[in-house]
């Protein structure tokens, strides 16, 4: 388990990381979200022991990163932002170097290097010099370095940055699979990635945690979460509204679209947690003989939640920036 408590990092007078605490257990994949400059990388650099925090504590498994850094680092794998590599080495040479520093020798080292090469699809470039590689290969070479010693804890700073869609997919499934046995923290800008890979998500903004929960919990913060969209052809909007109002589970009804005799309404449930509304609406539609094109439960949009909780307050007020979402952390 990685346990971070009250972590603070000052850069000059700026609080880059301001009192962050969280834990990640084995079997968890924690997605670290936040706008640029929110403190994601700084937090990860502190967890991996690259920069010391100004205050707070970091425990990696049974070791304290601040008092016992070498043993804590042995259990960690780290992919830094932008995947730095020694440009004067071959991929094979680089991985051997990293494996040696990880304490792997002889046959163990060979095995570890080859399995990392296989996992990261690097076979075709192992004897190539690092500075002749494309960005995708460089990224994977650095990623391979982080999993060489099969660490219990993995810290990945934007692991899919610069990869093409196929490679992104590969890396995501890799992270998901490894997440079953390890504790993984990874940062990203890509929200779908979070939905696809993470078991839990933390959003940080200006150095503080502003949201912490599973991706579906975060999506549920969206005001449209749980509302039902219905699109019907052969009725007028007024008629549709009147009928829907009679449903016991329906609260507010909003018009979405009304064009060419096709009406779309959004119906909000009285109780977000119960699914009664959808059933009632389906029954009503069948009874009334509506030709409906769509009956769909909205499960919230992470991008709008993300925007709403990370935009400065002044910007948040304007309607076009999305709904106002209040967050309780």
């Amino acid at each position: 388990m990685i346990k971070i408590e009250n972590l603070v990092k000052l850069f000059g007078s700026k609080r880059a990381v301001d009192d962050i605490s969280f834990t990640v257990g084995k079997g968890e994949v924690l997605g670290f979200l936040g706008p640029n400059g929110a403190g994601k990388s700084t937090t990860m650099r502190m967890i991996t022991g690259f920069i010391p925090p100004d205050s707070g504590s970091i425990r990696v498994g049974e070791f304290d990163m601040l008092t016992d850094p070498i043993r804590a680092k042995q259990t960690l794998g780290y992919l830094p932002e932008n995947a730095p590599l020694y440009t004067d080495m071959t991929v094979y040479g680089f991985l051997n170097f990293a494996a040696e520093l990880r304490g792997l020798r002889g046959a163990d080292r060979k095995k570890a290097v080859h399995s990392a090469i296989e996992t990261c699809f690097l076979e075709s470039v192992i004897h190539q010099n690092v500075d002749t590689l494309s960005k995708g290969f460089r990224h994977r070479a650095c990623f391979a370095q982080s999993i060489l010693h099969d660490p219990e804890y993995l810290i990945l700073d934007e692991p899919t940055d610069g990869l093409d869609p196929n490679q992104k997919h590969e890396v995501r499934s890799l992270i998901r699979n490894m997440g079953k046995r390890k504790a993984i923290i990874f940062s990203t800008h890509i929200l779908e990635e979070v939905l696809e890979v993470c078991t839990r998500t933390i959003i940080i903004d200006r150095g503080s945690i502003v949201a912490n929960g599973s991706p579906s919990q975060l999506k549920a913060m969206h005001p449209d979460y749980g509302s039902i969209l219905i699109t019907v052809r052969n009725v007028t909007e007024a008629e549709l509204r009147d009928k829907l109002k009679t449903l016991s589970a329906a609260a507010q009804i909003e018009s979405v679209k009304n064009k060419d005799e096709v009406v779309t309404l959004r119906v909000y449930p009285k109780d977000k947690k119960s699914s009664g509304l959808a059933t009632q609406m389906a029954e009503l539609a069948i009874q009334s003989g509506w030709k409906f094109d769509e009956l769909h439960t909205d499960d919230g949009r992470l991008d709008e939640v993300f925007r709403a909780i990370t935009l400065p307050d002044t910007v948040k007020k304007s309607k076009k920036d999305g709904p106002v979402i209040t967050v309780n952390v």
């Binding site: 070498i70 043993r71 680092k73 960690l76 780290y78 830094p80 590599l85 440009t87 990293a98 990880r102």
Partner: peptide, 14 residues
């Protein structure tokens, strides 16, 4: 310049 210092110093070396 390359940023490899981050790689090197997060390895278990002093």
């Amino acid at each position: 310049r390359l940023g490899t210092i981050e790689l090197l110093l997060t390895m278990p070396v002093t």
